[in-house]
């Protein structure tokens, strides 16, 4: 295990060391201590390593992650795992706004709650939230899956494209063009798999979830929908 004291050595040194792991590594386990809410911790990693951040992080922790498994033993600031490509990010605490924004792949797990705009514009990422999510989550979400064990705030899935949203609790309101859809066999399988990989299978069962998706009414412009745009 490599231990990196962020406060003592600085962000640039940390990220350069992590980026240098691409393509060559027998140093697969890393620990970052004293993160103290710094921004862009472990952003742009591109190697199948395990990074544990002992404490809370600022903005954009694990941004654009590829391949790495990054565990945050605290809460995460805005834009955690934004545009993640692959790999896994697991947050023990809560996540601030825009968690997993525009993510294109991989798995983001938030064991606490996620704030507003969770999964905004997501493009293939899977997100599992053990708690609740805030308003405007999955705005313009294009693809991927969101599984929420708790409740969802206002305007869930507004202007949604093809992302699939599964919520166990209450949804305060659905956004424009987002509707409830039937849970079919394939959806139970998706939820089951994500609960397991999201370390939540002991907390919930797939049958408890409802599915929300796009009504696809805004896909081609129609003047009679002008009030919805």
């Amino acid at each position: 295990m490599q231990t990196f004291d962020l406060e003592a050595e600085g962000l640039r040194a940390l990220n350069s060391a992590l980026h240098a792991l691409k393509g060559q590594t027998n140093m697969t386990a890393w620990e970052v201590i004293n993160p103290k809410g710094a921004h862009a911790i472990a952003a742009g990693v591109d190697a199948p390593v395990e990074i544990t951040v002992r404490g809370s992080t600022g903005y954009y922790c694990a941004g654009m992650n590829k391949l790495a498994t990054i565990r945050i033993k605290g809460s995460a600031g805005p834009g955690v795992a934004e545009n993640m490509m692959s790999g896994t990010v697991i947050i023990d605490g809560d996540a601030s706004q825009y968690a997993g924004a525009t993510g294109r792949g991989g798995l983001l797990v938030i064991k606490g709650n996620a704030s507003s705009r969770c999964g905004i514009s997501m493009k293939g990422i899977d997100i599992v939230v053990h708690g609740n999510i805030g308003h405007m989550s999955c705005f313009m979400a294009q693809s991927g899956n969101l599984v929420v064990l708790g409740d969802a705030g206002e305007a869930l899935g507004d202007s949604l494209y093809e992302a699939r949203l599964f919520v166990r609790g209450k949804v305060k309101s659905l956004g424009t063009d987002c509707i409830e859809k039937e849970m079919r066999d394939e959806h139970f399988l998706i939820v089951e798999d994500l609960l397991r990989r999201g370390e939540a299978d002991a907390k919930a069962r797939p049958e408890e979830f409802r599915r929300y998706g796009s009504a696809r009414k805004l896909y081609n412009f129609n003047i009679d929908n002008a009030q919805s745009y």
């Binding site: 640039r12 990220n15 903005y59 954009y60 941004g63 834009g79």
Partner: peptide, 10 residues
């Protein structure tokens, strides 16, 4: 902060 992140990544 966004600029910082992009600089760090690159």
């Amino acid at each position: 902060i966004k600029i910082l992140e992009l600089r760090e990544i690159t």
